[in-house]
Design a protein around this nucleic acid. Structure first.
Lengths: 128, 128
DNA sequence: TTTGACTGTTACGTAAAAGTCAATTATTTT
DNA sequence: AAAATAATTGACTTTTACGTAACAGTCAAA
C-alpha cells in the first residue's frame, strides 16, 4: 500500500520544523505529493530529507545540495557543463577533506580543553 | 625583537578581509595591541586567528569559538560551571564525530556523482 | 605636495535559513 | 454539530557573519 508520511511525522523524526520542510519544497529539493492541499511524503522524500540534513550538517548550502540532487535526477547533457560539474565536485572533495582534518584537530583540542577542566576540578576538589 | 604583523599582512595570509579581523576583535576573540590606533598583531593573535578560522570551517559559531578560547585563558573556577562545560564539550565531540561520519558518507556519494558524470561523458563522447 | 597604500571608526546593508505569527481551511474527536 | 487538532499559505522577523559605504587620519615615495 506504499506508506506515506505526514509532515509532522517527519518533523518529529528529524527534529526539524514544518516550516523547514516546506522551505525545502519551495526550494525545489523535495516534491511531496498532495491530497488536496495536504502534503504526502513518500519514502523517496524521506530519504531525500535525510540527505539534505546531512548536507546541511556539514555546511553545504541549499544551492549545493540542490545541485547534487539534480545530478542524480539527470546529469547535464552538455559537455562543458559536465566538465564544470566535475571540477566543482573535485573542489568539494578537497573542501571536505580539509574539513575532516579540521575536525580531527579540533577533537584533539577538545581533549586538551577537557583535561584542563579535569585539572581544575582536581584543584577545587583538593581545596575544599 | 618579537615580530608583529599588520592587519593586511594577515588578511593576505589567511584570505580574509580586514573587516573580518576587526570583527573578531569586536567579538573579543583576539586582542591585538595598538600603536596609536593601529593594530599590532603578535604571533599569539596569529595562532588564534588560525584556530578561529578552523572553527569556522567546521561550523562553529563565534560564541562557541569564544567559549573554547576562554577556557584556555582561564577555566571557570566554579564546580557547577566546570561540569556544565565538560558536558558541552562532550556534546561537541559527539557532534563532530557525527560530522565526520557525514563527511565520509558524502565523500562516498561524491564518488557516485562523479561516476554518473563519467558515464554521461562516455555516452556523449560515443554519440559524437 | 599630492598621490597611493594602508589604517581607522561608525553605521547601515545583506544573504541564508529558517522562526514566528496571523488568517484560513480540513479533519477528528467528542 | 461544536470543539479541538492539524495543516495550509503568506508576510514579516530574526540571527549570524560579515560586506560595503562614507569619511578621515598616517606616512612614504615621487
Amino acid at each position: 500500500m506504499d506508506k506515506y508520511y505526514s509532515i509532522t511525522e517527519l518533523t518529529r523524526e528529524f527534529g526539524v520544523s514544518t516550516r523547514t520542510l516546506r522551505f525545502y519544497e519551495d526550494e525545489g529539493l523535495i516534491h511531496p505529493e498532495r491530497r488536496g492541499r495536504t502534503r504526502l511524503f513518500r519514502a523517496t522524500d524521506r530519504r531525500l530529507i535525510q540527505e539534505i540534513l546531512r548536507g546541511r550538517r556539514i555546511g553545504f548550502t541549499i544551492a549545493e545540495i540542490r545541485e547534487i540532487i539534480q545530478v542524480y535526477k539527470e546529469p547535464p547533457g552538455e559537455m562543458g557543463q559536465l566538465k564544470l560539474l566535475m571540477k566543482r565536485i573535485d573542489e568539494k572533495r578537497e573542501d571536505l577533506r580539509q574539513k575532516r582534518k579540521d575536525i580531527d584537530e579540533t577533537l584533539a583540542e577538545l581533549d586538551n580543553v577537557e583535561e584542563a577542566c579535569l585539572t581544575r576540578l582536581a584543584e577545587i576538589g583538593v581545596g575544599t
